[in-house]
Design a protein around this nucleic acid. Structure first.
Lengths: 182, 182
DNA sequence: GCTTCGAAGTTTAAAGCTGAAGTCTTCAGT
DNA sequence: ACTGAAGACTTCAGCTTTAAACTTCGAAGC
């Protein structure tokens, strides 16, 4: 009676079989790639979330730290730029920065040379958190790819960037909602 | 004077260069794969979101339709199972079903044989929406993979499922938060 | 048969996000 | 200078989600 799997997530194979059953004009090979991509990404996000939680910061906060660090020294950005970078509204950014200021991860001050602007700057502590998070993340990522030979890694990187170029060409940047980690 | 890129998203290459600058013990090849995976997934989600929006349903609603369809005829599930499947809390599922009932995508009724349980069933209209969405999605997916030869597709699918197995083995299923589309 | 325990859903309060309106600053035209 | 318009951020109202309390029904034990 019922499915092979209970309530949890079906295996990838079960899911592809179900797609075949319900929607015949579907290339199983294509579906396999797409589904695996999606699941892989979800699992990675869960893993990152756990790691950052251990450090006492949320995933959302990690994103902000990351954007600031990657902007390069002196690790400053305006709320508006941060919002665009992370794909959220300026309003959400205001609140996120509120929290992070109160936790000492960043500082917020008016730009004296142009008093409309606000400058968000990474604190020493904030940078430290990012470094710790990166250490955890890099261990996880290296572990993830452990079974892949150097040739496979090269090939995978190449294929993925090819796909990425194709998607980005198709939809330049419009909107960029749906924040994610990369 | 500042970055190569403005406020928007840096290119993949710029981002990897920034990582190298800020965190030396990072294998650029690993980072390339991970970042490309993440970006690719985000772009795909944006694309799916647009397509479902055209059909007048939200991405969240599409997920529910998908779970029901893939469960097989007669396309019924309980709210709790749906919640587990989509990685949300039962409370969120209650509200989501409320909306979908009022839009005629699903029906909700008590199971008369066990009055604790509730049965959510796909309507004809809901199934139709799913089919339309799938048609759009499959066109998009086929287009995405257009440049890949059959051999490349096979290889990519194989490598991705290998990675997936590794992650799923590492973290069996604990929590499953962070809903996503696959 | 009554009580207790547990499972399934719903309700409620609080967090975070979006979209729209509001505030303050700067710049351009006169 | 003065006014109007545009830009950058914040505030506000509404929605979605989560976590936790609550309700209801069914199953076991005595």
């Amino acid at each position: 009676m019922g499915d092979t799997s209970g309530a949890g997530e079906p295996t990838l194979e079960e899911q592809i079989a179900a797609y075949q059953r319900e929607f015949q004009d579907l290339d199983p090979q294509v579906e396999k790639i797409v589904s695996a991509l999606s699941r892989l990404n979800r699992r990675m996000n869960v893993a990152y979330g756990r790691q950052t939680a251990e450090l006492g910061i949320s995933n959302a906060e990690w994103e902000v730290l990351k954007a600031l660090v990657l902007s390069g020294a002196p690790y400053r950005m305006g709320p508006g730029d941060l919002a665009k970078r992370l794909g959220l509204t300026p309003a959400a950014m205001t609140h996120r920065i509120d929290r992070m200021v109160s936790e000492g991860l960043v500082t917020r001050e008016r730009d004296e040379s142009n008093r409309v602007r606000v400058i968000v700057e990474l604190t020493h502590d904030g940078r430290g958190k990012w470094l710790e998070a990166m250490r955890l993340a890099s261990v996880f990522e290296e572990d993830l790819l452990q079974d892949l030979s150097p040739e496979e890694r090269t090939a995978l990187g190449e294929v993925l960037t090819r796909l990425l170029r194709r998607v980005e060409h198709a939809q330049p940047d419009a909107g960029g909602r749906l924040s994610d980690l990369d």
